[in-house]
Each structure stands twice: as structure tokens, then as C-alpha cells.
Design a protein around this nucleic acid. Structure first.
Lengths: 172, 172
DNA sequence: AAGCGTATTTAGAACAATTCCAAATATTGA
DNA sequence: TCAATATTTGGAATTGTTCTAAATACGCTT
């Protein structure tokens, strides 16, 4: 690991955020951040490791975990958890929700609704809500289509949701 | 484990649900279910184990996991996950949401809103939503109060939510 | 109440994801 | 270039959970 670390467009933002916490911009951190920006499909640490490794063969799993943690602390990346699966990492820092496919396990961003789309749940008194997120489950377009042709008359489905499916909002 | 298993009010419901899947009503299953009904504070498997153990000293962790799994399959209990913490178990089978306290780690039920309270997020086309749940984070009344007196002028808070806090809806 | 086939419980091993550790290496500023 | 500090690294340790195979219990039939 003797490379200089040229500061490019990716490095810019990264360095800026790191600097404000007194952290250093290293080749590994940049690589990991790059991976996350390049394909925003919510990869797990393992997947980030594999992708990073193809460009930087000597990077270690421990480092990937370290870098991810650092990026999270810097506010450049978010962790996304679903059930007890491995934590996934998301470089979309806008407020948004997630859809998890019961078929392929994929995670998709769901943009918060526009007009009156956000929930107006009333909390019991005393609770201080700092943030919230909606977690949707179901089938992604691919899996939905696949299931439709394999089992035309689907049973045991429980569409207990108030959400309409229409207009596109976000792409995998 | 030579006890008979008398069927009481708890056993009733349990037995009914078990029966429809060809499962047996055992003392352990009843004990575990009882624990979950008795104190609905979303205990983890470990906590269920400890509580069950005080009434049934020979019950094993493996059995607790087995029983919990069975109860989930029967539709009497739900799993609730938050971040990478241990799975918690919830005997409230109504559609509802959860609030997680960043202070004490507690989990609280949040009843779905009444008039227009549920989210109307529009999904991209093709997605099939089967269900959803809202996950709130913040401070529970106790922790909120504690923090207020310790740090009167709180910084670094990001109240990026559209949710009002008022009228009680659910108790811990 | 004895026997039988199946379900359940149990202790402990195995596992996956993640964190911790201490030594080696890299980076920054003087 | 050097010292001081931060980061990376491989491997061990941890946590929560699942798996396994043997022991036990159940429900039913005689």
C-alpha cells in the first residue's frame, strides 16, 4: 500500500467529511466509498469487500468493516438492516424508506411520498420521535412477475396495506 | 418433565392454534407463550428464557428457541427486529408499528393511526407490497425526561419527522 | 397399563456476522 | 526525514441463532 491518494471528485466529498472529524483520507476508505456510490444496490459488508477487492486485491475484511463504520460516522453512508440478515450499506442519505423483496431478498429505495404521503401517526405523550422509516415487504417487479406465471392463482397472500402501487419513484 | 398439561385460558388459544397445524401442546410451549402474554415488553429469546426458567427451571435455551419458532409459525407471536440486536418477540398480533428508544433500547408498540394515519406512499410500478411497518426512533418518556434535565440545551438532534406527538395510543 | 410411532426437548456443536486485538504499516505535520 | 498518531491487517473472540443426534414425552391403540 504505497500509493498516493489523489483527490478526485469522490475524494472531494469524502475528504471534506473526514476532515471535519479529524480523520484521514486513505485509499481504502475511498475505495469502499466508491463501491457504495458506484452501484447503489445496498450491498452487505461481504459484497462491498468482494467489489472492493477486485480493484484493490489486498484490502481486508476488517478494513472494509472499519471503513464502513467510518463512513457511517461521517454521515456519508447509512446502515440498513432487515430481519436478521447481514447489515447492508446505503449511500443515499436523503430521507427515504425501503422495500424488501421476499423473493430475491433485494432491497430497494422508496422515496417518501409527496403530498401528504408521510405518516401522521400520533405518539403517546412523552415520546420524542427523532426519525422514522417505513419498511415495506413484498415482491419486486421481477419476482412478482415470476410468481405470477408460476402460480397464476396465488393463495396465502395478505395484502394488509394502505399503500397504492403506481407511478415510479425509485430505481433499484 | 412428567407434569400433565391442564388446559386453561392460555392453553385454550394456544392449543387451538397448535392443533390446526398438527402440533402438540406441551408444558414448555405454554410456559413460553405465557411469558410473552404476561409482560408484553418485547423480550428477547434470552429474556424469555430467563423468565420461563424461573417457573420451569429445567427448560433449555434450545427449547425456548424452538417454542418461539413454533409460536411464530402458529401465528400467535411475531418477531421484531431492530438494528442488529437480538430478535424480540411480540404477542400483539394486531397490525401495529414500533418505537425504539435510543436511550434504553426499549421497544414500544405504536398503534396505527386512525383517520388517515396510515402512509400513502406510492410504489414504483410492478412492486407488490404485501405489508409494511413503521419504525420510529427516539426517546421514550423516561429517557426523554432524563435527558432533558441532564442536558437542558440539547444539540445534534435531527427531528426530521412528520409525526405529531400527542394523545396516548399505547402503553409499554 | 403396555407398546408404538411420532413429536418434542435437550445439551452441545456448528455457524454467520461482526467486533476486538495487538502488531505492522501508512500518513501528517514539524 | 522523523516522530506522533491514525489506519490497516490477520486472526482470535463474541454474539445470537441454528443444527444435530440422542433422550424423553405424548397420544393412541390394544
Amino acid at each position: 500500500m504505497k500509493k498516493r491518494v489523489p483527490i478526485d471528485f469522490v475524494g472531494e466529498r469524502l475528504n471534506e467529511q473526514l476532515a471535519r472529524t479529524g480523520l484521514r483520507l486513505t485509499a481504502q476508505r475511498r475505495q469502499v466509498y466508491n463501491v457504495l456510490l458506484l452501484k447503489r444496490d445496498h450491498p452487505s459488508a461481504e459484497e462491498v469487500f468482494m467489489r472492493a477487492k477486485s480493484a484493490m486485491p489486498d484490502i481486508s475484511m476488517a478494513t472494509v468493516y472499519n471503513c464502513l463504520e467510518t463512513l457511517v460516522k461521517c454521515g456519508l453512508v447509512r446502515q440498513v438492516n432487515h430481519d436478521r440478515k447481514a447489515t447492508r450499506y446505503c449511500s443515499n442519505m436523503q430521507h427515504h424508506h425501503h422495500f424488501y423483496c421476499d423473493g430475491c431478498g433485494g432491497a430497494f429505495d422508496v422515496e417518501p411520498g409527496r403530498a401528504g404521503g408521510e405518516p401522521r401517526i400520533e405518539m403517546p405523550p412523552g415520546f420524542r420521535v427523532r426519525n422514522f422509516e417505513i419498511l415495506f415487504r413484498g415482491y419486486c417487479p421481477e419476482c412478482a412477475a415470476k410468481r405470477k406465471q408460476e402460480a397464476p392463482v396465488t393463495t396465502s397472500e395478505e395484502p394488509q396495506t394502505a399503500c397504492r402501487s403506481s407511478r415510479r419513484q425509485s430505481i433499484p
